[in-house]
């Protein structure tokens, strides 16, 4: 088993960290363009029993 998996990362986390480091190492003129690809705005809400999970906790 690899060291990063032992640390609790999966391959996606691992490769993302590698990508982030690589982007930071780029020359300044290329870096701004590359950093745009590093953004993410998605919000994820876990659901359980037909309702968003955080609402259920509020009910209790």
């Amino acid at each position: 088993m690899t060291a990063w998996r032992q640390a609790g990362l999966n391959y996606i986390n691992y490769s993302n960290i590698a990508a982030k480091v690589l982007r930071r190492a780029l020359k300044p003129e290329l870096r701004t363009e590359a950093l745009k690809r590093d953004e993410s705005h998605v919000r994820i809400t876990p659901w359980a029993n037909g309702r968003p999970a955080h609402l259920q906790q509020a009910d209790k």
Partner: peptide, 11 residues
């Protein structure tokens, strides 16, 4: 709704 386990927004 009972089948939904996750919702992703801001797409």
């Amino acid at each position: 709704s009972k089948h939904i386990i996750s919702v992703c927004q801001e797409i």
